[in-house]
Every structure is written in C-alpha cells, then in structure tokens.
Design a protein around this nucleic acid. Structure first.
Lengths: 216, 216, 216, 216
DNA sequence: AATGAATGAGAGTTCATTCAT
DNA sequence: TATGAATGAACTCTCATTCAT
C-alpha cells in the first residue's frame, strides 16, 4: 500500500528544497534567510531543520540538484541528435534553454565559490567530464582536430557560461533586471561557428562546405 | 601646494582600499566586516566612513580598481608584442599572470553578482570591449576569419575565465585550498591552439606552420 | 487481573524515568532535551507526554526517586550495624557508596535549585530528618554530647555533601571529568573522626581508646 | 590627567557585570538572557559583546568576582579577631553575613556545576585552601586536635555551605521565597560548638571552660 | 498505547553604521 | 583628520509541546 507512496515528510522536504532554490536565485544566498525560505515553502521555521541540518546544506543540495537536471537535459538533447556536430549543437542549445528556464542555475552557482567551494567544483567538473568524454571519443574517430580533450572541454564550458550569462541572463541589451531571454539565433550560430572551427579536424578547412570557392 | 602632493587623507584612503581588496579576496564580501578591513588597514572604524559611504561602495571601487589594473596589464603586454597572434598570446598570458598574482580578481568578481550586479557587468563588459575592438580590426584586415567580433570576444572572455579558475585558482590538481599557481605551459598552448583555430582566417588551415606539407 | 501484573504502560513509564535520570546526570537538565530522553528510552517523543506532563515534572520525579533510594540505602546499612558509632559509619559509607554508584544524585540535585526549588528542599530535608531523629534519640540516651539535633543533622548533611563532591565526584586528584571513585579510606576515616569528635558526649574524651589513661 | 581616571568603557563594563550578577542570582543562568542582562544594565545588546565574549564568560567572571569578595570578607574578619577560636568564629560569621548580603553567591555557585564546572571547583578550592592553611598551622601549634587539615577544611566548607543554604537562603522557617535572613544566633552558636568540638585538641575536653560544673 | 511531523517563540551572537569626542 | 564606544535589527538554530494518525 505504501510501496511507491510519497510520504508527507518527503513532500514537505521537496517543498522546502524548491522554495530554497527560488529564494536563493532571487535574492542570493546571504540575503536568503531561513524565515524567507520557510515562508516561501509555507512551513514553520523549525520544520526546515527537520529535513536539512543547516542553511549551507540545503544550498549544496540545491546546487547538486540543478547540476543533475542540467546534465540530464544536455545528455537527453544531444543523444537524440544525429551526428557529432548536430549533437554538439543540441547539447549547447539545451544548455542555453535550461539556463533561460532556470536562471537559478547561474545565479546560484556563481555564489557557490564562497558559500561552498566544494559545490562549485563539483558542478563544473561534472559537466566538463561529460564534454571531455565525448571529445576524447570524437578525437579518436578523427571527427575533431588534435587537441587535448580536457582543455577543450573546459574551454567549451567557459564559452557556454559566459554566453549564457551575457545573452540569457542579462538579456539582449545588457539592461539590468530584464527577464531571462533566449540566446538570439544569430548569436547562437556565431558561437557554434566559433566552436566548430576550433574543433574542426586539423588540415580540413573548418567551415568550407557552405562557402564554396573560398579556399585558395 | 597640493598639486603633486599626496595628502595624508589620500594615503589613508588608499590603505583602506588595499586592505579591503585583501580581506574581500581572502574571506569574501559577506564575512568581511568593516572592523576586519579597518584593522587590516590600521585605522579606526569610524575612519572608514570618512572615505567610503558604505561597505558596498568600497566593494565597487575595489572591483573597478582591479578591472583597471588587469586591462592595463593586458594592453601593455599585447601592445609590446609583434604581430596579431603574438599579441593575442601575450594578452592571454598577461591575463593568467595577473590572475595568479591577484587571485582577488576572481574571488571578488565572482561574488559581485549578488553584491553589486552593476559591478559585475561593468567588469566583464570593459574587458570584452577591448577584445572586441581588436577583433573587429583584425577581421577588417583579414587576419582572422569571418566571425562576429562581439560573440567571439565574449567567447574569449569565457575561455580566459574558466581556464583561469580551473588552473590558476584551483591549482593543477583541483585540490582545494592550494595557492594560485601558473597555468601549466601545455595547458596554455592547448588553449591558444583552440583559440587560434577558432579565429583563423576562413579557408586557411588554422595551424599550418607546424604541419608544412598540409596545404593544397 | 492487573493486581500484581506490570502493565506495558508501566514498563514504558519506568523506561522513560530511568532514561531521564541518566540523561539529566550526564548532560544536565537544560541540555537534556525531550528528544534525547525519549531516544535513550527507545520511545517516540509523543509517548513522553503520555506519562509525564512536562519536562520539569519528570525532573521532580527523578529527584524524589533518587532521594527515596539513597535514604533506603542509608537506613538499611545503618540498621544492620551494631551500636551507635557503627551505625553512623555504616550510614555515611552507604551514602558515599550510593554517590559513587549514582553520580546522578549529586549532579541532578545541584541543578535543582533553579529548576525546581521545591525538589531541592524536599531532598535535603528528608535526609536530614532521618539524621535528626537518630541524633535526638542518641542525645536522650547520652550517647552523644549536648547539641541541637537539627543543627548537627544539617552539619552532617553538609559534610557528606562536600566530601562526596570533593572525593567521589571529582576523584582523588580533582582532575576534571574522571569517573566517580570511592572515597579513599583514609579520607573516610578522617571525616568520621571529625564527626565523632564533634558528637562525642560532652566531658568525655572523644576518642579515648587510642589514648588510654586519659579519663578522670 | 587620565592617570587614575576610570574610563567610560570601564564603567560600562562594570555596570554589565553587576547587572549580570543580579540577574543570574534572581532567575538563574539559563533563564537569564543577554537581553535581560543588558536591559538591567541599561545598555544595548551589542554593547555586551564589546566587553564579554560570551554569556558563559561573564558567568565565570561573576563567580570569580564573588569568590574574591567572600574570601576577602572572611580574611579581613578573622585577621581582626583575637585568638584561634575567635578568628574561626569571626570567619564563619563573615561568611554567613556575606551570604545574607549577597545571596547571589549561593544561587550562582550552585548552578556552576553544569554551566562551567571549572568555575565551581575554583570557587570551593580557593576557599578551602584558606581554611586548610590556617588549620595546618593551628595543628602544628597544638591548638587543634590531630586531624588531616585537608579533610577538616572541606568539612568546614560543607558545614558553612549547608547552614548558609538552610538558614540564610531558606530563612528560619524553610518557607520558600522569603528574603535572605541572618543565621539565628542560637543556630550559629550550635554550629560553632559542633566545629569547636570536632577540632578541639585531643585529650582535652572540648568545651569545658564555659560549663565548669559539667564534668563527672 | 504510541508515534513523529510540525510549530514558533526565543535563544546567543554579529555587524554596518552613527556620533560625541 | 581620526577615533571607537554604542546600538539594535537581523541572523541561524533549538526545543518543549501538540495533535492527527
């Protein structure tokens, strides 16, 4: 009878976790108080400590949770795509989409450095590991140029991060406080071009097919 | 009379600013208290408010100061270099060197999002503007491929940021707490290769010099 | 049916009472939480309030319980002894032994002043009443000197208390945190000598056996 | 000019210490909150932490302060007295008088066991050391009987403590909450008789001089 | 008879800021 | 120009007690 049942406690815990994510994203870790989180969750203050041992623990859990979800979104998107380049584009697109839908990701992760350094490293490292594995395989297959997969993976991470911050979080016009928007298509295309050229198999012209007659 | 003279007040102000940079870098904005900053500066608490109107104002000023210095270091290094590629390498090297010497840059900037969002945007935007101008000129000269200078500039910013965080701040082994180290030479080379391929003039082989028999 | 039977409820109640005694003794009334007591008893928090109306009530009951047991131990020991002096020694010895076996006695009673003043007075007064009765009888029989039994009884109580604290609770070397030890035999002898001299029949030499030829 | 001057800060500190003593004595350590103490002292909450690092630190200081004062009172009284017995009576009288005037002594010390065990031991040990030294000298002079000064000193401490609690703190009728009264003269006399008999030089009749016709 | 999730008042402590000197 | 004593609001966290199950 209670085999797959979600207990009342589990529901309360989930509500608090969700509220914490929202509040952290909105006002930041330090301005987020337990009172604000529990009010947002609709529970008493004491209830928080029934499920989390401290404010920092719930922060870690929020970061890990977001990390899990963004990686899931990226993997799902790229595995459905056809071919290496398509997969890459799909992965990046998923990353930007997730960022737009969950601005909490950025806002929370960037606070992590001082709040919980472990959480920050865990977050980046896990995502990078995914990239790195894919790049190593692609290099072995000759699908990309000769480059260290680790460095390349971190470079991709950096590009994704900054483009997400610049165009998703800040909006097209860098005006402050605007709601997160999608990455403009032309920006996305340019960013992908940048990446594809960087990774293109050495010796081959990086982007020749669509501009014939260009090579010497 | 006070034309070139540095007044006592100006010296006090500078001491507080310097102390603030150190304390923010070491323990973060929120754990840094006015008491800690003034103690580090060797002045009384009240003196702080003679020169700065609030904790957040001194933070903004620290960020702007670091920004000015890192841009200065990059410009100086790249303008002394010979040729576009050399200039770029020199600029990145200067960026990483500054990061290693002033870990405060990273640690403070990454806190800025919630402390003072304006400071964060100002910081990135100013650095990117420098890149962007250079890239636009280089594109006009045909020294780099056909790519939107703005997107490319942000991509470079992202690469610099993440490589700096990964290899300078975290150290070679991602072990926590280690002192900031230099970017290992092979990582630097790989990162530059990545960038040079991405920016290489379209149609040309990105890295031909080391593979002489490659061109058609 | 339930004449001699110990019901399940009675057993649960006894377990909680015992757990409360241990927890109060170990960490003190204020640091002892209902959760800790119920966990030590192996029951749920709510169960506590089925048998006790409040934390303070269980404290009172613990004090009264210990009081009953220490008096029982003293009475049993002294009633088995032969002669007034022997009885007294046996009573004190029993008191110290009980203290060593149940450090809770001290630790709990000394907290009682602010937790439940009534409990403190009840505890001391009951023990003193036992002494007092014995002393009054002994005085009437001429076995002890002419002294107010009430004052003498309180004096004995004070000696027992402080010697117990000093040598049983703090251990022989006043080092902190050591486990309760027995009163060293020579200390016990000296304390009894002190008491016997104080109570010795007036005019008589208090300790004649070891100094023969002294009486008039 | 400011040679012997008491600074403003020192005065504030003294006011807080005094308020803490009163509040601890009245409602006990645990019910005494920083708010209550600072309100009683007429300062803000934050001011407390300018002078004391924690609630427990001020408690320790209060205990040590009371200890110093009670020892001072005892020493002063007994050193002004004439002869060993008179000195002893004067010391005890001073102890009881101090207790009556500063019920805080008892009420605070008895809480110390769990609040700050070090403070409790320090308090008793220091007073006992004074007794012990005096008793050792008196024994060497043959003024008191042959008894271990350490055990005897602790016994005296116990008697003083319990008589003070019984008659000073609880008042003559053991009714609760009455204001601290003096030890009734006849109780004081009986207690001194008890002590003098216990300490009387062995072989001599303890209290014969004042009742000449008493011996057989 | 027994449970444990839920509560909210209140605890100790910190700190940016003010202001009389 | 410089000080540091003073403040009080706000913080995280604890816990005796209740009550629906």
């Amino acid at each position: 009878m209670n085999e797959e049942k979600v207990t009342k406690g589990q529901r309360t815990r989930a509500r608090i976790l969700e509220a914490a994510e929202q509040v952290f994203a909105e006002i930041g870790y330090h301005d987020a108080s337990i009172v604000k989180i529990t009010q947002a969750a609709g529970v008493g203050q004491g209830t928080f400590y029934l499920y989390f041992s401290s404010k920092i623990q719930v922060f870690d859990e929020v970061v890990d949770d977001l990390n899990r979800r963004v990686r899931h979104a990226m993997i799902e998107a790229s595995s459905a795509a056809d071919g290496r380049i398509e997969a890459e584009r799909a992965g990046f697109a998923a990353f930007f989409r997730f960022t737009a839908d969950h601005p909490a990701l950025y806002r929370i992760v960037r606070q992590a450095e001082f709040v919980s350094p472990g959480a920050l490293k865990r977050h980046y490292t896990r995502i990078v590991e995914g990239y790195q594995t894919g790049l190593a395989e692609a290099r072995a297959d000759g699908q990309i140029g000769d480059i260290d997969p680790e460095v390349a993976a971190w470079a991709l991470m950096g590009i994704g991060e900054i483009v997400g911050m610049r165009w998703v979080l800040w909006g097209p016009d860098v005006d402050p406080g605007g709601p997160p928007s999608e990455v403009p298509p032309e920006v996305f295309e340019q960013a992908m071009t940048f990446i594809e050229r960087a990774l293109a198999p050495t010796g081959a012209t990086p982007h020749p097919p669509d501009e014939p007659g260009e090579s010497a």
